[in-house]
Structures are given as structure tokens and as C-alpha cells.
């Protein structure tokens, strides 16, 4: 008993557990203050916020699918080489040889489709309930950026199987980028900036003028590193902002 007390009084213990277990208002407040996740989450939730009919739970489901995609994506990275020679055959090996590989890949693929739909529905709900209005304008903007990031994740992930479907989707997609005004070589006014197929925005996306090994590698880096990191940071801001703006919006309080 005495030893336990000694441990609990030690600097190491107190640097990790910064409050007592005793249920006092102070300890409860400290629990919230000292925990990043609790900090992002509102302290109090209104009755209406948990009503499925009002919120549809779309924000939570979006987060949930993001977590599933992160976990499955992480596992897929163990079996995948972002190179022209190997990418497609790695897909095939996931299907035929890796235990539960096909399940893993399908979960990631369908989860990705699901997330895009859910994020759209989330936006739709927020719009229909007028939750974008003051004081939530800032968070709406963050949400819009998150929607764009979700779709970029979807787009960059499309190329990774290195099959015909993905290849041509990226060809079409990046050709659209080539039509960007000023920055795409096929876009209006680009000639005044001296834009050619070799220095335009499409070139930046593909790392070349056609879809090849560089495009695959770039897709991979954007898909697995950059966009998820940015999305995580923005999601943190998004959740924190919900709390700061007075919790999830509810039906007009009477």
C-alpha cells in the first residue's frame, strides 16, 4: 500500500495522470482540460444533438469511415509498391494470396465510396438545417475544405490499382486540369504566361506529360501522406469549432 502511494506520488506517475480519481467537480473539469479528445468534444451535449432524425449522425459516420479507411489503408500499404511493374500485380496478390487480402481491399474500396456519399449527405443536412449560419460560418468553410479533401483522396486513390479504369480516369481528370484558365496549357489565356504541356498544372499533377510511373508515385504520396495529414488537422479544428460554436446545432430552441 505504501509502495503504491510512493509510485502514485512519483514524478513519472503524476506527469501521466494529472488528476485524482476521486469524483469531484474539480477532477471532472480536470479530466476534460487534460485530454485532447475530450477537449475536441463538447463538454455538454444537447438532447437534440443525439436525435438521429435531426442530425442523421452523418458527421460521426464520416469520422468513423475515415478511421476504417486509415486502418485498412495502413494495412494495404504493407502489400503495395507504387511502381508500374508491381502495382497491378500487388492488387492481384492481395486478391489471391494475402490472407483476408480481398476483404481488406474491398473494405477500403467500398469504405471510400461510402465516405464520399456520407460526407455529401452531411453537407446536405447542415445546409438544410441552416447550420452554416452565424456563428458557424467558419466551421462551414472548414467543412467545405474537408469535402474537397475527401474527393481528392478518392481521386488519388483511383489510380493506385494501376488498372485500365484508374488509368483512364486519371487521364480524363488531368486533361480537365489542362483546361484550367491561365495554368493549364489548353486553358484560356495560358499562352500569355508561356504555359506548355511541360510546365502546366497537369504536368505538376502527373510529374510528366502522360500518366506514368511518376503520376503513380505522386498519387501514392498525396493519397497516403499529405492529404490524410491535412485532413486530420482540419478535422481537429472542425470538431473543436463545433464545441466553440455552442455544440451541434439543434432545432430552434424554444
Amino acid at each position: 500500500m505504501k509502495m503504491l502511494d510512493t509510485i502514485k506520488r512519483s514524478v513519472l506517475w503524476r506527469s501521466i495522470f494529472r488528476r485524482e480519481y476521486k469524483d469531484t467537480p474539480r477532477n471532472r473539469a480536470l479530466a476534460i482540460f487534460g485530454n485532447i479528445f475530450m477537449h475536441l468534444h463538447p463538454v455538454k451535449i444537447r438532447d437534440s444533438a443525439v436525435k438521429l432524425r435531426y442530425t442523421w449522425g452523418m458527421g460521426g459516420i464520416s469520422l468513423f469511415s475515415f478511421i476504417i479507411l486509415t486502418v485498412t489503408g495502413f494495412l494495404l500499404m504493407f502489400y503495395y509498391h507504387p511502381s508500374v511493374e508491381k502495382a497491378f500485380w500487388d492488387m492481384k496478390d492481395l486478391e489471391f494470396q494475402v490472407p483476408y487480402g480481398i476483404f481488406l481491399r474491398n473494405l477500403h474500396r467500398w469504405g471510400a465510396h461510402f465516405m464520399v456519399i456520407v460526407v455529401w449527405l452531411h453537407m446536405f443536412r447542415v445546409f438544410m438545417t441552416g447550420s452554416y449560419k452565424s456563428p458557424r460560418q467558419f466551421n462551414w468553410t472548414i467543412g467545405v475544405i474537408l469535402l474537397v479533401l475527401t474527393m481528392l483522396l478518392s481521386f488519388t486513390g483511383y489510380l493506385l490499382p494501376w488498372d485500365q479504369l484508374g488509368l483512364w480516369a486519371i487521364v480524363v481528370g488531368t486533361n480537365m486540369a489542362a483546361g484550367t484558365p491561365l495554368l493549364g496549357f489548353e486553358g484560356p489565356f495560358s499562352e500569355y504566361l508561356g504555359i506548355t504541356p511541360y510546365n502546366d498544372v497537369r504536368f505538376a499533377i502527373l510529374g510528366g506529360s502522360t500518366v506514368g510511373g511518376n503520376a503513380l508515385l505522386r498519387s501514392y504520396v498525396w493519397h497516403c501522406v499529405v492529404i490524410p495529414l491535412v485532413a486530420v488537422v482540419l478535422m481537429a479544428v472542425h470538431f473543436w469549432r463545433v464545441r466553440k460554436d455552442g455544440g451541434i446545432s439543434g432545432p430552434h430552441s424554444s
Binding site: W89, K92, D93, E95, F96, Q97, I102
Partner: peptide, 11 residues
Amino acid sequence: GQGRATTSPDK
């Protein structure tokens, strides 16, 4: 044929 496939004869 598809030498890598193991999940069905047709594949």
C-alpha cells in the same frame, strides 16, 4: 491464363 489466381478455376 491468370497464373496468380488461386480463388477459382475460372479465374
